[in-house]
Nucleic acid binder design. Structure first.
Lengths: 135, 135
DNA sequence: ATACATGCAAATTGTTTGCGGGCAG
DNA sequence: CTGCCCGCAAACAATTTGCATGTAT
């Protein structure tokens, strides 16, 4: 992979990110360093990085493509349905039963994703406060 | 919910489907019974059905919104990465550890999705055949 | 030097919306 | 009768693509 100025910036952003970013978010961050970087470059670079296994794509309920560094410890995602906050969950309950699933289904499973949705601690508090003030 | 001709058709399709269907697929099926049914009607009806809890939305890696009947037994999905075939998996490894996850994260988890990707038995066979014919 | 990457703009694709007429309750 | 629903066409948003130019190797 040819190492252009733009690609360095994008790689850096992906690798620093604490959670999966959309193409738009990536471009916004990139613009801090290189305001002329085009959205199509973001997409093309991400595509290349996907092919090369440098990042992976995630989709939550909103259907937006988000991207995160590959090669992290295996993990899943927790999304707050109120504020949109996303975080990684290091636990994976699937490994233990993946073998059984393969046997039962006849599939050769290569990949899986688990997304959890709920209210983050902050939004739970906010909600509780709102309720009591209405009383 | 007002029971129009179109909605009867759409409800029927969702409820009969063996796996989640995209809006386009739903419209194609609907056209067998009512060729003038518009795609926007499909979307608006699905939206309404979502609100009323009559169906739910799923997204696989391709990012397309797919819809399936709600109120089925809790289950997840297995998608063949070669032919796109999708099927339901009745197993769910999360219930047992959901409580732990809530405690660990502080989230109140309301919903989760698990998608498994791999090769279905047929595509495994096809692949094996291709390989041997190349030898 | 040359192939590959970029920026820009236009094209596609999936989904949503505005409007005038139609139909279920 | 009345408000909700429909079909159609236009609007939108996310993503992809074509093309002329720039640049890493």
């Amino acid at each position: 992979m040819r190492m252009t100025r733009q690609r360095k910036v994008l790689l850096e952003i992906i690798n620093q990110a604490a959670n999966p970013l959309s193409a738009e978010e990536i471009m916004q961050q990139a613009h801090l360093q290189d305001p002329s970087l085009a959205l199509s470059t973001v997409y093309r670079t991400l595509e290349k990085m996907l092919e090369m296994g440098l990042c992976q794509q995630i989709r939550f309920q909103d259907g937006l493509a988000r991207f995160e560094q590959a090669g992290l410890v295996h993990h899943h995602h927790l999304v707050c349905t109120a504020c949109g906050r996303r975080e990684a969950v290091p636990t994976c309950p699937l490994h233990q039963i993946q073998q059984q699933l393969e046997t039962a289904s006849g599939y050769k499973i290569t990949y899986h994703e688990i997304n959890l949705y709920g209210l983050c601690p902050d939004c739970q508090k906010k909600l509780a406060t709102e309720k009591s003030s209405h009383a």
